Amino acid sequence: MQLAAFSPAPLLRVFPALVLALAIGAAHADDYGDVNALLRQGKADEALAKADAYISGKPRDPQMRFLRGVILTEQGKRADAITAFTQLNQDYPELPEPYNNLAALYAAQSQFDKARAALEMAVKLNPDYATAHENLGDVYVRLAAESYSRAKQLEAGNATVPPKLALIRQMFGTSASGDLPSAAPDARKPVRR
């Protein structure tokens, strides 16, 4: 499951005033760059502190709030990251990237129905969002695996289920116990566009 990087492209269509403000204030771009650089250097605590300081002065800034959610994800603070992306979705429901990242967090917790719903919203908002489509496919496969496993439990003699489960295990790799690996092995790695 892949996290998305926040792309300012949707902002160009949705928030022309924000684009103008960013063009006028180069200091803002430096703040985003500084936080990103700290995160890439593995200094997530410093990146979070800088993001929080920025947000305290500009609490409605969607890009820094998104970046804050990515930082929380990097730090393994899933509950806080879920809260951050959920609040961003409530304030800016037209942005698909927070839905994608929220879905990655849900999938990592094996909450595939919630992940599916978030990804379907991301795809609805941006039908050309390739990362969300790929993640949605992965979630559908996980949901299929759950259904096939349940069918096997209910009817152990059903010969059509084991080959389907084997194919899914082959796609995702199999642990020694035969279980599928974690839902989102790369959920902490933001995709840079």
Rank of each mutant, 00 (worst) to 15 (best):
residue 37 A to C: 07
residue 174 T to R: 04
residue 110 S to V: 02
residue 15 F to K: 12
residue 189 K to C: 02
residue 181 P to L: 06
residue 2 Q to W: 09
residue 181 P to K: 10
residue 43 K to Q: 15
residue 192 R to A: 06
residue 21 A to E: 15
residue 74 E to K: 11
residue 29 A to M: 12
residue 80 D to T: 09
residue 177 S to T: 01
residue 170 Q to S: 12
residue 59 P to T: 01
residue 48 L to D: 08
residue 117 A to G: 03
residue 104 A to L: 08
residue 1 M to N: 03
residue 81 A to Y: 09
residue 188 R to H: 00
residue 111 Q to N: 14
residue 121 M to T: 11
residue 186 D to T: 10
residue 142 R to K: 08
residue 77 K to T: 09
residue 170 Q to F: 04
residue 29 A to H: 09
residue 129 Y to S: 02
residue 121 M to K: 15
residue 170 Q to T: 06
residue 44 A to S: 11
residue 187 A to S: 01
residue 109 Q to M: 04
residue 177 S to Q: 06
residue 123 V to A: 03
residue 130 A to K: 12
residue 159 A to W: 05
residue 120 E to L: 09
residue 131 T to E: 13
residue 86 T to S: 14
residue 187 A to P: 02
residue 12 L to C: 03
residue 109 Q to D: 14
residue 104 A to S: 13
residue 129 Y to W: 04
residue 113 D to A: 08
residue 28 H to T: 14
residue 35 V to Q: 10
residue 47 A to F: 01
residue 29 A to P: 05
residue 108 A to I: 03
residue 102 L to I: 07
residue 109 Q to R: 10
residue 164 K to A: 10
residue 18 L to M: 13
residue 38 L to V: 04
residue 21 A to Y: 12
residue 193 R to K: 04
residue 183 A to S: 12
residue 143 L to Y: 09
residue 99 Y to I: 00
residue 88 L to D: 03
residue 6 F to K: 03
residue 87 Q to H: 12
residue 184 A to M: 05
residue 191 V to K: 00
residue 139 V to Q: 09
residue 139 V to T: 11
residue 98 P to N: 02
residue 68 R to Y: 00
residue 3 L to W: 07
residue 75 Q to V: 08
residue 84 A to P: 04
residue 69 G to F: 13
residue 53 A to F: 01
residue 179 D to A: 06
residue 119 L to H: 04
residue 63 Q to G: 00
residue 86 T to R: 11
residue 147 S to A: 14
residue 101 N to F: 08
residue 86 T to D: 13
residue 155 E to Y: 06
residue 186 D to M: 07
residue 70 V to N: 14
residue 154 L to G: 08
residue 47 A to L: 11
residue 60 R to T: 11
residue 92 Y to N: 08
residue 95 L to G: 09
residue 82 I to L: 13
residue 180 L to F: 02
residue 50 K to N: 02
residue 6 F to W: 07
residue 64 M to W: 13
residue 60 R to Q: 14
residue 16 P to N: 08
residue 143 L to K: 04
residue 118 A to C: 03
residue 4 A to Y: 00
residue 13 R to D: 14
residue 45 D to E: 13
residue 171 M to Y: 14
residue 132 A to Q: 07
residue 138 D to T: 03
residue 33 G to K: 13
residue 177 S to Y: 00
residue 37 A to T: 15
residue 42 G to A: 05
residue 69 G to V: 00
residue 72 L to I: 08
residue 178 G to H: 07
residue 27 A to F: 14
residue 85 F to L: 08
residue 89 N to W: 00
residue 21 A to M: 06
residue 111 Q to V: 02
residue 123 V to L: 01
residue 154 L to K: 05
residue 156 A to R: 08
residue 76 G to S: 03
residue 111 Q to W: 00
residue 32 Y to N: 07
residue 142 R to S: 03
residue 137 G to V: 02
residue 99 Y to M: 00
residue 26 A to E: 15
residue 157 G to N: 10
residue 136 L to H: 03
residue 154 L to E: 14
residue 128 D to E: 13
residue 13 R to I: 05
residue 172 F to H: 06
residue 72 L to Q: 14
residue 130 A to H: 10
residue 177 S to I: 01
residue 175 S to T: 15
residue 33 G to T: 11
residue 37 A to S: 14
residue 163 P to A: 05
residue 110 S to I: 04
residue 147 S to T: 11
residue 11 L to I: 10
residue 58 K to Q: 12
residue 74 E to A: 10
